[in-house]
Amino acid sequence: MALNRTDVEKIAHLARLQIDENDVPEYAKNLSNILDLISQMQDIDTSDVEPLAHPLDAVQRLRADIITEQNQREHLQQAAPAVENGLFLVPKVIE
């Protein structure tokens, strides 16, 4: 499976990754090789096989509906790139 420039650019956009124009061919080549490696799977008939999402077929544990988290805004926002009036700031979102 060979990916071309358009494929790589489309994937990079979906993943919101800026890829340098000059690096696109290298990515295309490496991603294509990886997909070739992966394509070995396609030879195996798995039509009757139940997918395994979790190694242990365990079920979800439930949490009691009780408040355990208190306000830690200042503490948690110390790591934030831009904050004002308690809000995280991002470049203007246009709807």
Partner: peptide
């Protein structure tokens, strides 16, 4: 970035069954 792109591609529309679901089936095997 490479792995994010592989993963993004594998999950993208039309490829889920051929890649992710298939891999989870192989996992069962």
């Amino acid at each position: 970035k490479r792995r994010i792109m592989v993963g993004t591609y594998a999950l993208s529309e039309g490829f889920y069954d051929a890649y992710y679901k298939k891999a989870q089936q192989i996992r069962r095997l």
